[in-house]
């Protein structure tokens, strides 16, 4: 089979990988073009002894490592789907590659090892480093709005365990609003039904009228959220919750929330 025929079905995925790795479609595509030009120049740049997809990604990363195409992501027009690009950019290149190969592109550890031409234990170390860098990057000051003490304690233990700080636990609408006035959280975890009969939803709406912050609702009554009038993108977890679900959704909310970092970049 010709190289062209072997790699053609994988090009859309390589463009995705390149986009995620470089932070912009223009820059990513420039590298994909460069790798195809490298094959035209020298077909031996394609490792025929490897599965085509692995050989293609390996050649791509060799190109990416060896040349700088001088297409700064900030020069390229930014498209809408790239809210994570800023956060990905901040991960050290090698760990970023390993993380994206496995989490985004679905390569197994041993396949990623072949792509990066490294022993599997080094891939494991790179993935761990990516995990640590992501945790550090998304570390947040969290306000918990929850009236049930045991659940509040569970949530507190869970979020501090993954590197976040709890600014406070509010049990009522009034406490929540007062807490935000005191210190601005970077994430809010909110129950809907609060101790004094007040509503976590109304508390959050009041908070969102003064600050912009991602909100995750944790509720036994998800239907009460379906009012169809939430302007802010919110997240919903149903009680009783799995700790793993809460961790995943918190990470998602913060990883894809680049407003603070964006404005910082623009100011620079």
């Amino acid at each position: 089979m010709s190289i062209a025929t072997a790699v053609a079905p994988h090009l859309p995925y390589l463009r995705r990988f390149a986009r995620a790795l470089t932070g912009s479609q223009a820059s990513g595509d420039a590298y994909v073009v460069a790798v195809l030009e490298a094959f035209i120049e020298d077909p031996n740049a394609f490792a025929r002894d490897l599965p085509a997809r692995i050989a293609l990604y390996r050649a791509f990363l060799k190109v990416w490592d060896s040349i700088s195409l001088n297409m700064d992501a900030s020069d390229a027009p930014t498209e809408d789907a790239d809210s994570a690009d800023c956060n990905l950019d901040a991960i050290t290149p090698r760990p970023r590659q390993a993380f994206l190969l496995m989490a985004l592109e679905g390569f197994s550890l041993s396949e990623a090892a072949q792509v990066l031409d490294l022993p599997p234990q080094e891939i494991k170390a790179l993935i761990d480093q990516a995990g640590a860098e992501i945790a550090e990057q998304i570390a947040a000051d969290i306000l918990i709005i929850e009236d049930e003490p045991l659940i509040a304690m569970d949530l507190e233990a869970l979020v501090t365990d993954v590197g976040h700080r709890v600014l406070g636990v509010a049990r009522t609408h009034a406490e929540a609003v007062a807490a935000v006035a005191n210190r601005q959280p970077s994430l809010v975890l909110a129950d809907i039904q609060l101790a004094d009969g007040s509503s976590g939803l109304e508390a959050v709406n009041e908070i969102l009228s003064t600050i912009t912050v991602p909100v995750i609702f944790i509720t036994a009554y998800p239907e009460r959220l379906l009012t169809g009038q939430k302007p802010e993108p919110t997240f919903l977890i149903t009680k009783p919750f799995q700790p793993e679900t809460v961790k995943a959704v918190i990470s998602q909310a913060l990883f894809f929330d680049t407003r603070a970092k964006r404005s910082g970049k623009e100011a620079a």
């Binding site: 679905g106 761990d128 995990g131 992501i134 945790a135 993954v162 590197g163 961790k247």
Partner: peptide, 12 residues
């Protein structure tokens, strides 16, 4: 702290 395999897969 670091995000674990479950969270990495979720982000992916």
């Amino acid at each position: 702290a670091r995000v674990d395999a479950n969270v990495r897969a979720h982000l992916g």
